[in-house]
Design a protein around this nucleic acid. Sequence first.
DNA 1: GAGCAATCAAAACACTGTTACGGTGTGTCG
DNA 2: CGACACACCGTAACAGTGTTTTGATTGCTC
Lengths: 234, 234
Amino acid sequence: MARQVTSICCDAGGAFVTAFEYDDAMAKPKTHDEALRLRLLHRAAATVFDRGTAALSLRQLAADVKTSTTAVYSLFGNKAGLLSSLYQEAVHLFVERLATVHPTDDPAGDVIRIGLAYREYAVANPHLYAILFSDRSVQCSSESDRPREVVETYRPLIDAVSRGQRAGQFSSESAPEVIALSVWGMAHGLVSLVLSGNEPPELAVADCYERALRALVAGWREGEERASGVADAM
Amino acid sequence: MARQVTSICCDAGGAFVTAFEYDDAMAKPKTHDEALRLRLLHRAAATVFDRGTAALSLRQLAADVKTSTTAVYSLFGNKAGLLSSLYQEAVHLFVERLATVHPTDDPAGDVIRIGLAYREYAVANPHLYAILFSDRSVQCSSESDRPREVVETYRPLIDAVSRGQRAGQFSSESAPEVIALSVWGMAHGLVSLVLSGNEPPELAVADCYERALRALVAGWREGEERASGVADAM
DNA sequence: GAGCAATCAAAACACTGTTACGGTGTGTCG
DNA sequence: CGACACACCGTAACAGTGTTTTGATTGCTC
């Protein structure tokens, strides 16, 4: 449960804590420093991680970390800023997880494995996943930064598809981005259905997930996409 | 914009308004009646429809309809109950929309058309769609009712797949529910990516959507799903 | 007409995010 | 060396929220 969360604390490393203690002719030494920032982030992640963003109260958060709400405002601007920072961390962990799928000489298999890793991360970290993809309250990172982050997360998938095309495993009639997007969409869709409680009853999505991915990959094989034209049956 | 919303007001029909005005030896005549219930639902739908559930304030809602917040509590229990009723309506509209895709003698084509209708509803009614599938704040309908509603929404898809299997357009090795789920997942995933602002830059999902669906359908053709085994390329 | 009880608007409560205020403590300057 | 200045930051105030309680109103029943 708290496994992933602790990694948030470790990621940025608490090294240069006393970096800009004073910038001009100043007064009190800062206690709203990088170390406190990480403690807040850590604690907020834990709460969001198992009760969602709505359950995160700045007052409670500040009390837990034994500071005041002012700290959140001086370090993150406001609640949205705090969640935005969490968003960044969630992206970071997500990218890291997907990067553990190393390319092999079977690109189509890599695509499947990336899809499985996608699901594994989401199921293991449902609230961080929610921050990434569903929570409307996270405005995050000035709108224009987001696409770049998004493309970063699914770059490995595009690469795998490209290699698959060169290896003849995928049709070259469509751009690799298009094929990758379809895989991304299916993974995201099936995962989202489960996490939002909308998975159909009496049907374990987990069992169908890989088969669905394989069917999609099969459908993008050379020459297949033309054959699926409308007038086909009887 | 307000087109779909007004239909919410008309759906239940304000017929038996004076049904149970008095049940025992009572006092004041009720003003928190079915008509008021519909007015509240209508107004709430309008707000949620274009500003989301978070922007819905019960005080403001009551003021708009010229009643008090007590009305919401006596008619819906609480805010969650109100949103739950909205959820029911959103499901209803969604099912209605998907039902407009009539079966033809090309079941595979029907599957594609259902997928397109899915997307069309979501894009036209983003906030109702959000209530259905993403908004965590909607606990809705006692948990146990939901699966039945869900299955209702994607029953037409299962039927189309079943017919496709009999027509030889889909492999019969997988249950129709599995194939339908994959289509449902892809549609939901691609739509969700767009609505949550996570669509990849420089790539119009709208343009890829139908192609992705067609690839998936192609991948479920007879004998295809076995061929996508791991060791395939060089 | 008196009693009574259901009804419902308004006020109270406990919470939220956010902003304004002031005591605190440190460095600089006279 | 003391007084000033000023950034810092905990506290309290503000404007909201959903929800619960209160208490006047109202119209049937006896």
